[in-house]
Simulated assay, not measured.
Amino acid sequence: MKKAGKNGIHVFLSKQHVDEGCSLGKTLKRSQLAELTRYSKHGGLTLVLTADDVAVQGFCMSNCGSHGLVPKKKSTFIWVGNSMSQCPGQCAWPFHQPIYGPQDSLLVAPNADVGVDGMVVNIAKLLADTVTNPFGNGYYQGEAEAPLEAASACTGVYGKGAYPGYSGEHLIDASSGGSYNANGINGRKYLLPALFDPSTSKCWTLV
């Protein structure tokens, strides 16, 4: 991203790189995630996605993804894992049965792929958290070591009327039965999480 004066911020998309050979192996430490940003540019934001057969330290147990820094490049990165074969109950709800809590409020994944639709949710969460708190000194609540950020402060909320175990109101695609609250390009539909609104001290939802 690059500042553009009075015109706001310009966003430039860089190239996509695929590490098919898993150069760092398929069992990664969190400290290795920054190494996967080797193609990132100075001041950029890199999105790292790992396949459903790649295990990352802490994945499923404490998080579904994370964001961090690459100090030498003054850049940030987001990592999100595909939980389908490892922990869909933790990282693909509300499209998959949760491990704990109510078991009767599942939604149909809008793109018919529970793992990838779950990744979209986590990407959206972390993108909001990274933009508002890129270096750990931006917007967050609580302790810096375990902050509640713009999206993590509203975990499990996707529409109005949400409560623990119920994701809230949303739209239904008549052709697929998929639940969504946002429209993408080429007719794609997505379910995106709520963000905390400091002006109202409530979670703001698209629907």
Score class of each variant (00 low, 15 high):
V157Y: 05
V80E: 00
Q97E: 10
L171G: 11
P110F: 08
Q57M: 01
A34Y: 05
C60L: 10
G81H: 13
D19M: 00
A124V: 11
E20T: 12
P102R: 09
K6M: 09
C87G: 04
A55Y: 12
P98I: 01
D19C: 09
G5M: 05
P88I: 01
V11W: 14
I99P: 00
K72C: 06
G142K: 08
Y140H: 10
G168P: 05
D113E: 02
G58K: 15
D129C: 05
G21I: 11
V121C: 06
P198S: 14
G178M: 08
S62T: 14
C87D: 06
Y163C: 09
Q103L: 08
S62K: 15
L45V: 15
Y139D: 13
L206N: 03
V114K: 04
A162L: 01
W79Y: 09
F12S: 14
W204H: 15
V120K: 04
N7W: 10
N7V: 04
T50C: 10
N63M: 14
N82D: 14
C203G: 14
H170P: 07
G81I: 12
S40T: 12
S105V: 05
L13G: 15
P134F: 01
P147G: 02
A144C: 07
H170G: 13
Y190P: 09
P110T: 01
P193I: 02
A55N: 13
I78S: 02
G177L: 13
H42K: 06
L171A: 15
K73A: 05
D52Q: 04
S40H: 02
M1R: 09
S176M: 09
T37N: 00
Q97T: 08
